[in-house]
């Protein structure tokens, strides 16, 4: 092991990490927003909304992320639409968030459906409307069920974001590979990248684990 290249190239890793965090952050936020909409469509009584959402979720979960990325990047030519490097990043974020939304939707749906049916009945028997019952009783309980799986999904997004290096976004994976190329060291730059990914995901899971612990008070 030889990390002599670090003083010269450390900035590549810092810049790359910044991009990775940026891409993952926006992908997660957009994924949650879109995923929430999808899950509400999926549990709604409207047949059209329901089947559109189901079809979308099945398709996104049943096709490779790389294919989805290429469809958006090359197929829809998303970058040219927006233009420049920002366009590339937008393609990456769009792909990751559209993909993540399908998983988030399923997590939310199963979280809501795992709340005991009696809770809804009790709320309705007191005279609450469906909406009130969802707001005061079902969602707060569902959120607790959802959180661990959602944290897992965040971690998946951080890791999967490495795939956008393929379309030339200078995030952590891309920059580590660049350092590998210029230093002729195949091993060390990638180890550093792996370590940084691990620090990101591990910190996140610890932080959100604390939040989870606080929510467990009522159990």
């Amino acid at each position: 092991m030889n990390f002599d290249f670090l003083p010269k190239y450390y900035n590549f890793f810092i810049q790359g990490t910044k991009f990775t965090v940026l891409i993952a952050f926006f992908s997660v936020i957009l994924g949650i927003i879109f995923g929430t909409v999808l899950s509400l469509m999926r549990i709604s009584n409207n047949k059209i909304l329901k089947s559109v959402s189901t079809a979308y979720i099945e398709f996104m979960r049943g096709t490779p992320l790389l294919v989805q990325l290429f469809i958006i990047y090359y197929g829809l030519d998303f970058s040219r639409l927006i233009g420049g490097e920002f366009g590339d990043i937008a393609s990456g974020i769009a792909t990751l968030s559209l993909n993540s939304a399908a998983y988030v939707a399923e997590i939310i749906r199963s979280g809501i459906q795992s709340v005991d049916k009696g809770q809804m009945e009790a709320a309705r028997s007191l005279g609450m409307t469906y909406r009130m019952a969802m707001r005061y009783v079902i969602y707060p309980q569902a959120f607790k069920n959802i959180l661990p799986a959602l944290v897992n999904e965040f971690i998946v997004v951080i890791k999967e974001s490495s795939i956008v290096s393929i379309i030339g976004i200078h995030e952590l994976m891309y920059n580590a590979d660049t350092v590998r190329g210029v230093t002729f060291r195949p091993f060390e730059p990638l180890i550093i990248a792996a370590l940084i990914y691990f620090i990101l995901t591990f910190t996140l899971s610890k932080l959100l684990g604390k939040l989870e612990g606080r929510l467990k008070l009522s159990d």
Partner: peptide
């Protein structure tokens, strides 16, 4: 029906207390 149910209390076999509330 929500207005009507306000005047009809119900108690269930499985209690169904809201587990997210005190």
């Amino acid at each position: 029906i929500n207005k009507v149910r306000q005047k009809m209390g119900m108690v269930f076999q499985s209690f169904n207390l809201f587990s997210n509330m005190t």
